[in-house]
Amino acid sequence: MPNKHILLKRIQPEENLYHYTKCRGVQGILKDKAFFATKSDFLNDTNEMRYTLALTRDVLTEFPILEEHSSLRQQLSLTTEEMKRQCYYVLSFSVEADSITLWSEFGNNTGYNLEFKSGELLDMISRTKKISYHGLLIYSRETQRKIIHDLLTKDIPQNLGCSFDDIMKNAAGNGGDESFRKYCKQFKKAMSIYAVFFKQEEFAAEKEYRVVLKETSDSEVHYREKDGFLLPYIRVNLRKAHDAVNRITVAPQNHVDLAKEGMQMYARQLGYSAEVCLSKINLRY
């Protein structure tokens, strides 16, 4: 059941999502009709979890009552550490159709970009895997801090039917207070999700959109090699991939006829009618 404390900006069904990848990645998606959803703590920016943990601890220092009762602050800090135990798998897209940042990061300027109809893509994914959450990443540090502050002082206390001050005062007098334990549990659950959607402002140009899947008992975890280590992932099958792919864009550095014509032939052979076009970005090397 989705956590009602989680508020994310979602894409509209008629809008498009874009997946930047190298040539081998495009072949895998088009031919095998599948995505690889990466375990959340193995994503490209390995600092993501540490960033959210540090941000949360920083927000906790704003509350005098936590400073007065260091044991409470410690318990809440331990609650944030427990976020790392949560097991989610992530599919990453972007709402940017032709981004030099993403071309460089995911395809070394020589890859491809698959454009998907978001409504059909999300429906397709949900037919094989349960989508826990999906939405745009939050890059603004100010917004992130406000979300954490509101969770602590308003959202979770209201859900428990009492005020933040009362929860803290009761916990200060009795470290084993039941309301405080519930408070910490709900905070951990909410932050374990937000940790997947918080990212440093320096990455804002990516305009990333994530689809988060919860690992279940029947999830078959696979491993692939990346940069000399094993990367855990689960396979997400796309039964009607032909219907979801709108367009295939060739990266800026591949502005040669063979790059476009080769992909056109490959897509047609696999039964795709998607348009194949060149990036509008011109690079000189």
Rank of each mutant, 00 (worst) to 15 (best):
R10Y: 00
I11D: 11
Q12V: 01
Q12F: 02
E14N: 09
E15W: 00
E15R: 00
N16M: 08
Y18F: 13
Y18H: 03
Y18T: 02
T21R: 06
C23W: 00
C23S: 14
G28R: 05
L30G: 05
F35G: 05
F36R: 13
T38M: 14
K39L: 13
S40T: 01
S40C: 13
F42S: 12
L43C: 09
D45W: 01
E48N: 04
R50I: 10
T52W: 03
L55G: 06
T56P: 02
V59R: 05
L60Y: 10
S70D: 14
L72I: 06
S77D: 12
S77L: 05
L78Q: 14
T79V: 08
T80V: 14
E82K: 07
K84N: 11
Q86I: 01
V90K: 04
L91I: 13
F93I: 04
V95F: 09
V95E: 15
E96Y: 00
N108H: 06
N109S: 10
Y112M: 08
F116P: 03
F116S: 08
E120G: 06
L122M: 02
D123I: 00
M124Q: 14
M124H: 00
R127Q: 15
I131H: 11
I131V: 14
S132I: 01
L137D: 03
K146P: 04
I148N: 07
H149A: 12
D150V: 00
D150K: 03
T153I: 09
K154V: 09
I156F: 03
N159T: 11
G161A: 04
S163F: 01
S163V: 04
M168Q: 10
A172L: 07
G175I: 13
D177M: 03
R181E: 15
Y194D: 12
A195E: 05
F203N: 04
A204T: 04
Y209T: 02
R210Y: 03
L213G: 10
K214I: 01
T216N: 13
S217D: 15
D218F: 07
E220L: 12
H222S: 13
Y223K: 06
E225W: 10
G228R: 01
F229W: 12
I234W: 11
L238N: 05
H242K: 08
D243A: 14
R247S: 07
V250I: 15
V256I: 12
L258K: 05
K260M: 14
E261V: 02
G262S: 15
M263N: 07
M263E: 09
L270P: 10
Y272F: 12
S273A: 13
S273K: 07
A274R: 00
A274I: 00
E275F: 01
R284C: 13
Y285T: 08
